[in-house]
Nucleic acid binder design. Structure first.
Lengths: 355, 355
DNA sequence: GTGGGCAATGGGAGCGCTCCCACCGACCTG
DNA sequence: CAGGTCGGTGGGAGCGCTCCCATTGCCCAC
């Protein structure tokens, strides 16, 4: 040690004059434990190069003083922020089946529970928000990003890619998604639903799709088609009607289908909300569900349990998706160079009364 | 200036050797603008004591370098964090009408949009989380707290009170709530609902309440009672059944009421979800809604629009509650000593088919 | 006994800001 | 013209950490 300050190195003096009502600092812990700052830091950060004796002394001092590291000071020097952002484009979020959002959050939060990372929630509602977010990300204020509800032409994932910020999407933009993502098996779920309708003996199975610029909508339509074709049925355009994931859209789509193909005897809707709309149009047209027309939705949302008749629907493990997203993100943060990863989680058909 | 370093004070040299790919710092901005660090800081923070000339030079330099202040460094010295936490006890959150959670978030986020504050989301699911949160708050890692869904005996508000952290509740614990809060006019909404039933000519109006250790449940029951009494009707215990805000609870409560008072001709439920359950029991008992029994819910949630018949319900301005909470919190942060404030927002009866 | 290696340790330097004090010059006053 | 006043300014100090280097003491081999 170079002799700079004439400070006697005697036994620990406890605390020196502590200013204000401030929280204890590393230095105070060190003084109380009778060791140097470096050693305390090593103990706090779990370094192995510390003697048992020193570790015990530090731990005692930490407990006694109720020491909690100052996050800002740490961030300043490490330039880690110990925070991740959950980014939700609001417009899309509203379309999602109702518990979706809270379930994602719930899963994310659960998985984050013992990681000491903060969860920042960022709602993006317009162009200005998008720009602010980009600036924000460029300023490196988070260690990673979870992005929910991606449209095919959303610029945000590209920004994340360019900035090389660890990030995980819920869902993907298309077949070739370079970023890590976690998605439900939408195609598989749709196929199960249509198989179920076929097994029931339905002959003319229609489908109401979501906006086809979204990969979810494409995938669900793909599953519908696959089920028909594997059963040797013909895929017919007149049985497909595009809507926008809203109830009103579902109503209009069903009306159009009834007009075009009056003899339709089953409908697979790409969301419960649209199915609820379809149900109204069916009832208005005097069709009984499921006797005249069988109906299946997607999401197994709260709406599905409250329609009359209760709706058969495809469930996706939303909470598990949230958890998995965090797991992937943490790995990516820990090992920045690693290859992007893709996870697809199984869906499940919940059979109720409507089909 | 004291002559310390032999550093020539010549014209601005632009940037010096910049290390790494780091973001520009205050110092670099100062150099480029040809002013001192202090002046740049003053400009960034909107101090009035800066000449026009200097301000312009700094702003140009900021734009050119794409400078964004380092939040950690700022926090370290000011001990402001520029972040607020939205705390949601998960168990309770799940009981809430479905869009509640997202609407609160949406309002909060909207109001926060141009304040440069970060929104931290904290879900609390058990005792361990509660303790972690307390430690977290003690470590002063947020400037303020928004707390949603408070139970009467929730210890969290007390912690907030003791720590004197600026905080605003959604709802209140009881009549005497010392903390700032924003609540819907639950009593008023309930009264409107029951008045509506009275106007319809209903004679025996029952109610299904929420857990009476929650102030919302108490308030809604209070409104029910007030409406009856102001109409000169008698408040009768046998017409009141307590449930737990769940669908199943609503079902059971309705069964009990039908058994006890078969001649019941109207029911006010303290939530839509419970009303949905009640509806099932009514149907099972062969009662027609609204002809035999009129039914009103509370929350105007998505469920209300999808029951058959569609449910008359009391709407609360949830998003507006979120916005107001932020507004109060910001005021409290800006002026720590100020008196706590209480805001009650009006509710509204949405008449549909069930009553 | 001497030298080398190694684990454990202390503490200086420095992260990028804000705060504050000292200083500068222009302007006003008597 | 000396002596204030005051808006504007520069930059040292310091916030609480981590990083890293130098130093220590110990053990083992030669």
């Amino acid at each position: 040690m170079t002799p700079t300050a004439p400070r006697p190195l005697g036994p620990p003096t406890g605390r020196e004059e502590r200013r204000g009502a401030g929280r204890p600092t590393l230095e105070e812990v060190a003084a109380l434990a009778g060791v140097g700052r470096g050693t305390v830091s090593r103990v706090i950060n779990g370094s192995p190069r510390v003697s048992e004796r020193a570790r015990a002394a530090v731990e005692r001092a930490v407990a006694e003083l109720g020491y909690v590291p100052n996050r800002a000071a740490r961030t300043l020097v490490t330039s880690r922020t110990d925070a991740i952002a959950l980014v939700v484009p609001e417009a899309e979020a509203r379309l999602f089946s109702e518990p979706y959002f809270s379930d994602i959050i719930s899963g994310v939060s659960a998985e984050l529970a013992d990681s000491d990372l903060q969860l920042l929630l960022v709602l993006v509602r317009n162009q200005r928000d998008r720009e602010r977010l980009s600036a924000y990300l460029k300023a490196q204020r988070v260690d990673g990003v979870l992005l929910v509800a991606v449209h095919r032409d959303d610029p945000l994932p590209t920004v994340l890619e360019d900035l090389r910020i660890p990030s995980v999407l819920a869902g993907r933009r298309g077949d070739q998604e370079p970023l890590s993502y976690v998605a439900a098996d939408n195609a598989g779920g749709a196929r199960m639903a249509v198989r179920h309708l076929l097994r029931r003996g339905c002959e003319r199975i229609a489908t109401v799709t979501g906006p086809l610029d979204m990969e979810v909508a494409q995938a669900r339509l793909g599953g519908y088609r696959a089920a028909l074709e594997e059963a040797g049925r013909e895929y017919r355009d007149e049985l497909v009607e595009q809507a926008d994931f809203t109830e009103q859209g579902g109503r209009a789509a069903m009306r159009a289908l009834l007009e075009r193909v009056p003899e339709v005897d089953a409908v697979f809707c790409a969301s419960d909300v649209m199915a609820a709309g379809a149900l109204q149009s069916l009832r208005a047209a005097g069709r009984r569900v499921p006797q005249d027309v069988a109906l299946i939705g997607f999401d197994d949302s709260i709406v599905a349990r409250h329609t009359d008749p209760a709706m058969t629907s495809v469930r996706q493990p939303i909470q598990e998706m949230g958890r998995t997203m965090v797991r992937l993100l943490l790995e990516e943060i820990a090992e920045p160079g690693r290859a992007r990863r893709q996870v697809v989680l199984a869906t499940e058909l919940v059979v109720r009364e409507s089909a």
